[in-house]
Design a protein around this nucleic acid. Sequence first.
RNA 1: UGGGGCGUCGCCAAGCGGUAAGGCACUGGAUUUUGAUUCCAGCAUUCCCAGGUUCGAUCCCUGGCGCCCCAGCCA
Length: 559
Amino acid sequence: MTLPETASSTNFIRSIIDEDLKSGKHKTVVTRFPPEPNGYLHIGHAKSICLNFGLARDYNGRCHLRFDDTNPTKEEQEYVDTIQESVRWLGFDWGEDRYYASDYFEQLYRWAVALIKKGKAYVDDLTADEIREHRGTLTESGRESPYRNRPLEDNLDLFHRMRAGEFSDGSRVLRAKIDMASPNMNLRDPVMYRILHATHPHTGAAWCVYPMYDYAHGQSDSIEGITHSICTLEFEDHRPLYEWFLDQLGIYRPQQIEFARLNLTYTVMSKRKLLELVQQGYVSGWDDPRMPTLVGMRRRGFTPEAIRTFCERIGIGKNDSWIDMGVLEDCLRHDLNERAPRVMGVLRPLRVVIDNYPQNQTEEFDAPNHPNKPEMGSRKIPFSPVIYIEQDDFSEDPPKGYFRLTPGGEVRLRYAYIIKCVGVVKDEQSGKIVEVRCTYDPQSRGGSAADGRKIKGTIHWVSAPHSIEAEVRLYDRLFTLLNPGSDKGGADWKSGLNPNSSETLKSCRLEPGLADAAPERRYQFERQGYFCLDTVDSSPGIPVFNRSVTLRDSWVKNQ
RNA sequence: UGGGGCGUCGCCAAGCGGUAAGGCACUGGAUUUUGAUUCCAGCAUUCCCAGGUUCGAUCCCUGGCGCCCCAGCCA
């Protein structure tokens, strides 16, 4: 796999790998991205994907895609499919190395039997509530289950019958026999298997006992020969257990390394919360352009390159961090500024009639597709005596420093003519300006005055009769709160939802060439931002454009 | 008051005993037919605090303080 990224910045994980390679502990690097197919991937997953696949790429190793599908009650094939699509879209390739933890169920079962025979696991008949009561608290040690020391043969028989389907869900579990007094809660005889009479998306009805994450993950890593098993900080406490199973089994032990998960300001990242937004209709779906999901960001107009740059920029560490949404937005601008062709589109049209322009005349101007990249070519844009400009680009009573169109003032129509405002037409009832009358300077074709006078303002426009109609959706941050997800379990987190995160503009007028806009193509609407065709709601007659991100604007910032 | 982590600029983040990289943000200024882009300049005498070791400490030691995670038959 070859990607254009510049040399990755260093981080503590690369240091560990460098040492392992240097010391000869490992000859190659094998990482893995292990999503559970129970939801859509989001920008937080992208951080992990870029890390794991990026390491494999840079060290000439491999990165496995492994579905961590040990809980059939939450997982679905649909998620397996979209996860794969998102990883590919991001630009990564797992080659032949796609695995399912569920492919290891038989091996895992045999290992469990081995642990029972070793006296390191037992079947517990306690209920879930009883197990919780026995576990103790953070400051008090737990109590042993009365079933903890049942005869080895009984454990073997019971576990076999659990698999055979003789018992109901929740009636028994297999537990590791470790230490009920451990200060690490994870070591207080953790559950290894639970009974779940459920159909599994990958193994169907083959099983009714399913391994827990802790019992499955390390062994899966071991089977696949993972060298560095990278996960997020909350699993740090699980590492002793990860290592305990592997050591008891006497099998190869990969190194688990933990890093801080991504937090982004003005949004939420947990699958639970995202699911809630979808199910309760706060957004239109997982792919709503405001969602931090990969499918949502794609629909919004993000490029894989921008997301990869973002993941590179934010770095990898162990500090709990909140990355400013502005960093993500800047990464998109950075990418799109380079590659997006420029076009003109008027979002809130104001009709302008040019009085001294021959009323039946039409002409065309040549407009470069990118001001700094002549190699991107140019296009013809039609001009006529009736055009539309942005309502914001005309002001009867301009604020200080305003240099767009004003009564009696001049402004340049980009790539066309210099015009001068000679009057306004208002609606008699509302007093609202419905039309601006102008004259044009015939000597300014292309936009430069023949007498060399300087025109400070340049605005975009479209020819009224030639323009096409479109719907444009302006998106803003989903939340007004900096850290909406930081209240943990609270039910209150949705109070920070931004009521204006989406604004739909009908009757926008775009230059005619946009009639051919294709999905996945991004454009810069000059002076306004980057937009892309909405793949879901566009219809042949009325295209719908999503604003991916605005342009920087030092004017509004100073207002 | 158990255990595990983390504390370097507003937000991220390098640094690994030799005198504080970089990015974003921000502030100036230049160029500009996008108030965009680009460019140039500025932006931590200081690394949570207090002691100690050392010629020298953000890096080592000790003690504080602050924040995060763990009591699912979720991952």
